[in-house]
Design a protein around this nucleic acid. Structure first.
Lengths: 207, 207
DNA sequence: TAGATTGTTAATCGATTAACAATC
DNA sequence: TAGATTGTTAATCGATTAACAATC
């Protein structure tokens, strides 16, 4: 089945499955089933089987799935079986926290490029790598063929930064700035805004 | 229409609308339309009108919506017209970054309680408020009637922390730990894991 | 009045789930 | 063999969109 024929909502669940499988693997569990996974994730077993069926047959009737091989298959499908280098723009508290976050390493990503516009920050080292000027984004990212970037600037500069990243050939942006950015069709954007999640839950709270 | 009759997916878009309206308001724009909002957000105008229609009539034919009053209406609907106090458990780099983040203040939330299990951190002040022991979660959150919490601990302790929070009467959890936690039906959980977003986008990248 | 935009209906589209034959 | 679980089909369910009367 062609890459573009598979619903994006299915793609969105694959990383969740992968995360759960990795955890099972760490716990030393060798076999699992769509029922067990579903119960753990709050997803129906039928949905898990249907989702996986878009990509092939990974299970064994009567038994279930081998945790290691399904995990490995999902890594291949998601393109995270090797490590992507990632650029980070905006070195504030959040940017630094992400730079120090150990959770990227074994899940397919490593932040290798840091950019900021503040002359006081440029030249400072993070994880041994110097922070560079946003003016050099195009040059550096093209040189190293970087395809993924994270934006952790204030909302006011996020669109401008996005424009520079796109000019530099970036194809995937994780945007922490609380604003929707406009990008060409071939560039993907994911958003992280904690307040969106909080407000969504506040709706259901008694006041 | 009753609270529970409205699809959660609709609720999930309201904070996006509110965020865009707040921005328009800051820019001094007084009137907008479902078409303008939709174009900005990448959502169809029909969907925006349909979503809003669950809650009443907020526009004027031929004109559109008054930015200030629609914004205010959405704040009321979402229950963020007053400020919620929020507890934060896990004071690592990410916890500190959230504690210093200025973006909660005018969107309905303020972090007022900090917890950690590390004796070296307990007693330290953040924003003038001391970090307290996770052992005092139940006591402190019940005393102050806190309903919302954020978890920024490692995955290993997230479920245990969630259990404590639920025991303390918390009804909404924003979970930054990369693990699905199990909670009773009356408790809502939202997840933030940057790697999930990165992996989802990696699928579409050429390798 | 002419133009624009809402709120709403009905049609379309797509996602989820129930059920089961196949089979380990 | 009996029990369990997959992969898949068809039915159900729900969400999105097109279209338009109402009306500012």
């Amino acid at each position: 089945m062609a890459r573009s024929d598979i619903p994006d909502i299915v793609i969105g669940r694959l990383p969740i499955y992968l995360r759960a499988l990795t955890r099972l693997q760490q716990d030393g569990q060798e076999i699992t089933s769509s029922h067990e996974l579903g119960k753990q994730l709050g997803i129906s077993s039928a949905q898990i089987r249907k989702d996986l069926s878009h990509f092939g047959e990974f299970g064994k009737q009567g038994t279930g799935y081998n945790v290691a091989s399904l995990s490995s298959a999902l890594q291949q499908i998601l393109n995270v079986h090797h490590e992507w280098q990632v650029a980070l723009v905006g070195i504030g508290d959040l940017g630094r926290a992400l730079a120090h976050y150990g959770g990227f390493a074994h899940r397919g990503f490593r932040i290798t490029h840091f950019f900021d516009s503040d002359p006081h920050k440029i030249g400072q080292a993070i994880n041994g790598t110097p922070i560079e000027s946003v003016d050099s984004i195009a040059e550096k990212l093209r040189r190293d063929n970087i395809k993924i970037a994270m934006i952790t600037t204030p909302a006011e500069t996020a669109q401008e930064v996005a424009d520079r990243l796109i000019e530099a050939g970036i194809k995937a942006i994780l945007n922490y700035a609380p604003i929707v950015i406009s990008v060409p069709d071939e560039v993907r954007v994911q958003y992280i805004d904690p307040v969106i999640g909080l407000q969504r839950m506040a709706y259901y709270l008694e006041d």
